[in-house]
Nucleic acid binder design. Structure first.
Lengths: 110, 110
DNA sequence: TTAATTAATCGCTTTATTGCGATAAACTTA
DNA sequence: TAAGTTTATCGCAATAAAGCGATTAATTAA
């Protein structure tokens, strides 16, 4: 159905999947890496950098902004985007716990 | 188009997005957490645990197996699944680097 | 006020994903 | 061999995601 049955999962599981989905597209990964690299960025720069059309980049930025991973400030006719560090760290903690489940060594079975 | 233009991104960016996509569904997150918790699991257990239909769980397991994050061994009529620790750690390293980009503190701009 | 610049939104098409009923395949046991 | 158990696959329907041309909105500069 293309529709995840979120109600049967824990809040943690849903939260992990929502963040993961944000990273589930190389364009959004590229956008975030670029924002980390240069600290600040205008949408037009990203269009040049990434190579997708302006409406497409704008759509990806909207999704990242909706999740709180980036924030944008209007500066004249352009918009300055950057990482929202507080929310990024919060997301990182959640993902790190999930990825770090192998911390306790157990016997492999197969 | 629903089709990511992978050729315009780096291998690293594509790899991150492929792994992230695997975690982009709460059922797959739940499956992985369960496999970590009990070390080993038969498909039927997961069907009971998660609450989705058997073909649906089987499909999610297939995706995780294709990525190498889990492996399955036939044991009689059932299949024993468990985390592939080597590949999991490899994935974890890639994701950790991506998530750890905030290590170098920089000025926020907006 | 008008033209130019920049980004967001609309509308649409195409492909991907999710879910599951039905069935098939593989194996075990009686 | 026949029946039962367990998992994989097929086939389909419905929703989601990706991409972008065209347009709109907001701001600045002339």
């Amino acid at each position: 159905m293309g529709l995840a049955k979120t109600e049967m999962f824990t809040d943690e599981q849903n939260q992990i999947s929502v963040f993961a989905k944000a990273f589930g597209h190389p364009a959004r990964v590229a956008i975030l890496q670029h924002l980390f690299k240069i600290d600040t960025c205008f949408c037009g720069d990203l269009v040049k950098e990434i190579g997708l059309a302006q409406p497409t980049i704008s759509q990806h930025l909207k999704e990242l902004k909706y999740l709180g991973l980036i924030k944008g400030t209007v500066e004249g006719t352009s918009v300055c985007y950057c990482i929202d560090m507080d929310n990024w760290k919060e997301m990182k903690d959640i993902m790190t716990i999930f990825l770090g489940q192998d911390a306790l060594p157990k016997d492999e079975c197969c």
